[in-house]
Design a protein around this nucleic acid. Structure first.
Lengths: 116, 116
DNA sequence: TAAAGATATATCATATAATGATATAGAAAG
DNA sequence: CTTTCTATATCATTATATGATATATCTTTA
């Protein structure tokens, strides 16, 4: 069984996040690499070591599933129902983290200002 | 093409992010631990190994600075100007990542669906 | 005042995660 | 034919996080 603290805690690492997002449509590994580059306007480039390592882990956790095998050449994956659930949770986690950041920067983090 | 260390790429890890946010006000290590627990409604707990390791790293990069030393007991840190800059950038990065996630989930990532 | 629990910092060994380098090979383009 | 792109895969190393442990002070309370 695959170890992984992030997933055990229902968190996605950034790389897992990008990969899971890409797999909202069926894609093979190399396509994921291109999709991520595309989604991030070339900001994020994921190499083969990260890509196939993470694909294997997500697959073992059944967050993604192999949907097609083109001979030996292409392996097409897609996100699973539980993968979608986790992805949604992680988007919300990321929103909460960013909101928290904005609040603290604006100095609004302390207590409730009931003003009355 | 971001590779290598998070800070070299102007990215903050989650732990660094929480710690830098906490240091928008002067705080010593143990206070940071409590602040993070507080900010996250007890969701995030950072242990001493992570805390002091990261504090040392942020300090070496001058993203935070030692502002006071209470005898040998307390070391009070605060975020620096460059730390604040990086923090702002990272909040925006996190917002962009979450927005991207929402778009893809809603199936709006490809082209513009003008509803016609 | 003794003990307990909270505060406070620090490091080691290990676990987890990411990635550059490398290997292999088919397909497309020139 | 040879270069480039597509495509998957693993190894060795680096990067990051953390549980366990150590040490010491301060605070509360029995």
């Amino acid at each position: 069984m695959p170890r992984g603290k992030a997933l055990d805690d229902n968190r996605l690492t950034d790389s897992m996040y990008y990969i899971l997002l890409s797999l909202m449509e069926p894609l093979h590994g190399y396509g994921i690499k291109q999709k991520i580059s595309d989604l991030s306007n070339g900001e994020i480039e994921i190499g083969p070591a990260s890509l196939y390592t993470i694909l294997k882990k997500l697959s073992a956790r059944e967050l993604i599933a192999l949907v097609e095998e083109d001979g030996e050449r292409r392996k097409t994956y897609q996100i699973s129902a539980s993968g979608r659930d986790l992805l949604k949770r992680d988007i919300n986690r990321r929103i909460r983290m960013a909101e928290m950041g904005k609040k603290v920067l604006l100095g609004l983090q302390g207590g409730n200002d009931d003003g009355k």
